[in-house]
Amino acid sequence: MLEVIFGNLDLFLFLLLMAVGYSCGTIAEKRHYKSIIRREKELIKLMLVNAEGHFADGAVNNSFLVSGSMVVSNDYFKRLLAILRNFFGGRVKAYETLIDRARREAILRMKEEAKAKGAHMIVNLRLETSTIGRSANKKNSVGSIEALAYGTAVVMNRP
């Protein structure tokens, strides 16, 4: 038994990484989505638009930049799915959740910052995504992405 394992070490390592990637990735994703949905509901009252803000004179008390970002890592299982997708074409479904989670989490972090500073709304929302580690999807390394959300938090003059 041991001989078989050591004889095909790279194959076993590959399967192990797949299994770890799948199980840990799935658990992390489920927990993350749960938390995202809960916090989104909590913060839903904080208005968020990507339009420029136009306000009447004297309506705005204060405004400042708020930002939030999240870096999320790929795993071996998702990477395998993506590699196979590279071959067949079509939606790289494995990566959709990564991008979605990163974006929503970044927005949430930005909103949390704005709320903590007493803002009533965020205008001019912008989203950006970048890969971290140029080796993403190359050789034996696993890359990660960052989603950045930033906008202008506005504190209104309210009685």
């Binding site: 299982f77 998702k78 395998l80 799915l81 196979l84 939606r91 479904k93 494995a94 959709e96």
Partner: peptide, 11 residues
């Protein structure tokens, strides 16, 4: 933004 397919099914 996220497809409904189960990852193992896709695999």
């Amino acid at each position: 933004n996220v497809s409904k397919t189960h990852p193992l099914g896709e695999l």
